[in-house]
């Protein structure tokens, strides 16, 4: 994957246990320059522990981490200068204003990105003089991401940046991540929202019980699943027309199953285009009106279920 690009992060057979609980059990992956890499998994899968080991906050029991060509044991300060971290708990100076927070954090680094520019990027320019205490959850989270960008880092780590936020606030965070991508930053992100991983990432790493289950682009992961798609049709003419269409669908090639609920018809097909062509041929001929048509795309959720055999719980 991305063989032409330089690897900015290499994680090799990482292992960490707390007492008898194995939190991370032999995780290995590489991240290329400019990639948005998402580690996804249910709560307690080992996402945060993995991330904290990479960020230098926890010592792995076993395995190696090479980050921007350096290792934590030899060049910790140099690594800290070049990475940006947003931890899960948004830790901020809550009696300081947005601008003051950014200012203090910027003073820690040799290299800095202008505070003005960061406030624009995280869309907090209007709230620059507001104390953190008075900000909303989403605004705090954006500031925490802003703090991870003050040194114009080469790699940014975002640990569950959208957990606990409302849909609008989540979308705002997504915008920031996409802007970071435009800036060519390498972003490593954890989440337990499948939708988010699908939307933002170049590559997704699915983790469960401390092990990597699958690692690939969202598209490829979904592609690895069966090609079968669900087609949903709703008929204006009611149950009778739907029943007739059901008969047609059953005799169509590549259809694996058909079910009907009143005027609503669900057809599963391994070649959905062909199936739809056949069905629409029939409706045009009979002048039957179709109210709604949809094809449900497979999501990473289906991937998770397919790979682990478990239900996905948000």
């Amino acid at each position: 994957m991305n063989s032409g690009q330089a690897m900015v992060l290499q994680v090799d057979r990482l292992r960490k246990s707390f007492g008898s609980v194995v939190a991370v059990d032999g995780i290995s992956f590489d991240v290329a320059q400019g990639e948005v890499f998402t580690i996804i998994g249910p709560n307690g899968a080992g996402k945060t522990t993995t991330l904290e080991m990479i960020e230098g906050m926890q010592k792995p029991d076993d395995g190696t981490i090479t980050i921007l060509g350096d290792s934590w044991s030899s060049r910790a300060r140099s690594i800290k200068m070049r990475i940006g971290v947003q931890p899960q708990s948004s830790a901020l100076f809550d009696l300081l204003t947005v601008e003051e927070n950014l200012d203090v954090f910027a003073s820690f680094y040799e290299r800095q990105r202008p505070v003005e520019e960061i406030m624009r990027l995280i869309n907090l320019t209007d709230h620059r003089d507001k104390r953190v205490k008075t900000l909303s959850g989403g605004q705090k989270q954006r500031l925490a991401i802003g703090l991870a960008m003050v040194n114009d880092p080469e790699i940014i780590f975002l640990d569950e940046p959208t957990t606990g936020l409302d849909p609008q606030a989540r979308r705002n965070i997504w915008d920031i991540v996409l802007k970071l991508k435009e800036l060519g930053k390498t972003t490593i992100l954890t989440t337990h929202y499948m939708e988010e991983a699908e939307k933002l990432s170049d590559r997704v790493c699915i983790v469960d019980q401390g092990k990597i289950i699958a690692i690939d682009t969202p598209k490829a992961l979904i592609g690895r699943l069966t090609k079968e798609r669900e087609i949903h049709l709703t008929f204006t003419g009611g149950a009778a027309q739907a029943a007739e269409a059901e008969g047609i669908a059953r005799t169509t090639e590549a259809v694996t199953s058909v079910s009907r609920d009143g005027e609503h018809l669900i057809v599963c097909s391994t070649r959905p285009e062909q199936t739809l062509y056949r069905l629409f041929g029939y409706t045009t001929e009979q002048e039957v009106q179709v109210e709604q048509v949809s094809i449900r795309e497979m999501s990473l959720e289906d991937v998770f279920i397919a790979f682990t055999g478990k239900e996905w719980r948000d």
């Binding site: 960020e55 230098g56 906050m57 300060r77 800290k80 200068m81 971290v85 931890p87 830790a91 954090f105 820690f108 680094y109």
Partner: peptide, 8 residues
């Protein structure tokens, strides 16, 4: 902890 992640 957050401050320890910075070079401060």
């Amino acid at each position: 902890k957050r401050l320890m992640m910075t070079p401060v």
